[in-house]
Design a protein around this nucleic acid. Structure first.
Lengths: 209, 209
DNA sequence: CGGCGTTTTGAGAGAGCTCAACATCGGTGG
DNA sequence: CCACCGATGTTGAGCTCTCTCAAAACGCCG
C-alpha cells in the first residue's frame, strides 16, 4: 500500500534549496521537552535532525492522542505554514535536535521554486493518505483486528515482517489501545501462532487475506 | 479553531485556471452509485458540482469507515494526483454531479501556476489538520465526550449552534458511533439540558469550557 | 546493586455494540 | 387524498470487550 508515495522524498533535505537550509535554526531538545504547544504562534517549519518527536493533543481528561510521530528526516508543523497558531503539542520522545525554517522563508521558497512546491505538496498528499489509513484503523473496534490492520499496513518488503520503531507502550498509544490490551492481545496472537515475536520485530505467520 | 484556514478557498473553482476548468469532464451519479473504488487506476482530480459524496474504506467485516464527506464545491481524490491507484471508495450519497480534471492537466497547472499550487497546498494542509482533529476525536472513548468534541469543533460563528449537514445516521458514521448510541446520547444530553435539538441544528446550552 | 520504566498477568466494572421491535417521516402511486 | 413503503429515528435488554485499577516480574542504566 502507498507503494508509490513511499518513494517520494520525505526528508526536507531533498527539496529545500540550499539558501533555505542555510536559514535553518538548530535547536536541541532533551527527552520529554516541549518544542511547541497548541495555541502558540507558529514560527515555521521544523525538520527533525536527530531523535524522535511526537505530536499530541491533550483532551481535558489529560488523555493524550498521538497525532503523529516524527523521526530524523521528517518535517513537522507543515500545516502551520498556513496557520497563525499551532494546533497540537510537539514533545521530544528522546533527546533530539530540530532545525527551524522560518515561515516566511519557506513560503517564499514554495512560491518561487515549483519543484520544491511540488515535493511539499506530494508530501502533504502522502500525509493525508497516512492519516486516512489511521482513521480507518481507529474504526476497527477489536484490539486484535486493529493490530492485524497495523501489521498489514506496516509490513516490510516481504509483507509479513514489521519492525517496531519504539516501545510497545508507544505503539499502544499510536494504536489507540491501552498498553495492557496490546500486551495481552499480542500474547494471545503469539500463543495461537498467528504471529512470532522477536526483539524488535513482529512476524506474521500467515499472510493476511 | 482553524479560523484562518476556514477562510481559504475550498472550492476548486477558486484556483483552477479557466483552461483547466474547460478540460473538466462532467459526470452524473445516482444516489448510491460508485464513482471509483479502491485499487482502480487514478484518473485525476474530481470536483463535486452537485450533491454529496463520501469516501469510505471497507474492512473485511463489511464495516464502513467514512474517511471524508464532500459536498458541492469540494474536491476529492486530491492525493491521487500522486498515486497510481485510489485508496478508498467514492460513493454518491445523493444524486450528484462531478467534474473530472485529468491528472496530467492538473499537475501541469500546479507546476506552471504558483498561485494555484499555493492554494492547492493550503487546501491539503487544511485537510491534514481536519484529519488530525478527527483522529483526536476518535481517541475519545465516551460517546458523550465525542459528541461534545464534535459540537465544539463544528460550532458556527456564535460558538454554540451546529448545523447538521445530513441525517443523524450519517453523523453517527462520521463520529464512529452506532446510530443507536448517538440517538441515545443525544436524547440524554437534551434531557439534561446540555443541548437543544431542532430540525437540522443542535444548540449548546452552555458554552463548552 | 539499586532504581525506574517497560512488560506482563489478574480481576472487576462500565460502556458501547448487537439484536430486536417499534415509531416517524417523506415520497409514490392508486 | 389516502394507503403504502422504505429509510430514518427511537427505545429496550443483554453481552462482549476493552478500560481501569492492582500487583509483580523483567530489563536497562547509572
Amino acid at each position: 500500500m502507498h507503494a508509490i508515495l513511499r518513494s517520494i522524498p520525505v526528508s526536507a533535505a531533498d527539496w529545500l534549496s540550499a539558501a533555505v537550509r542555510a536559514a535553518g535554526i538548530e535547536r536541541s531538545l532533551r527527552a520529554g521537552q516541549t518544542l511547541f504547544r497548541a495555541g502558540a504562534r507558529t514560527a515555521g517549519l521544523y525538520e527533525v535532525a536527530k531523535g524522535k518527536l511526537r505530536l499530541v493533543r491533550v483532551d481535558r481528561d489529560g488523555r493524550e492522542a498521538v497525532l503523529h510521530t516524527a523521526a530524523a528526516g521528517d518535517t513537522i508543523a507543515e500545516a502551520s505554514l498556513f496557520s497563525a497558531t499551532y494546533h497540537c503539542d510537539a514533545i521530544a520522545m528522546t533527546d533530539a535536535a530540530v532545525r527551524l525554517y522560518p515561515k516566511a522563508v519557506v513560503l517564499a521558497e514554495l512560491q518561487s521554486n515549483p519543484k520544491a512546491a511540488q515535493a511539499f505538496t506530494a508530501m502533504l498528499a502522502h500525509q493525508v493518505m497516512t492519516l486516512r489509513t489511521r482513521l480507518e484503523q481507529r474504526n476497527i473496534h477489536s484490539a486484535r483486528d486493529r493490530i492485524r490492520h497495523y501489521l498489514a499496513v506496516n509490513a516490510g518488503a516481504d509483507g509479513r515482517t514489521v519492525a517496531l520503531a519504539g516501545t510497545l507502550k508507544e505503539l499502544a498509544g499510536e494504536l489507540g489501545l491501552t498498553h495492557e490490551a496490546l500486551y495481552r492481545t499480542l500474547a494471545e496472537m503469539a500463543a495461537s501462532g498467528e504471529i512470532a515475536r522477536r526483539k524488535r520485530t513482529i512476524r506474521l505467520r500467515k499472510s493476511p487475506i
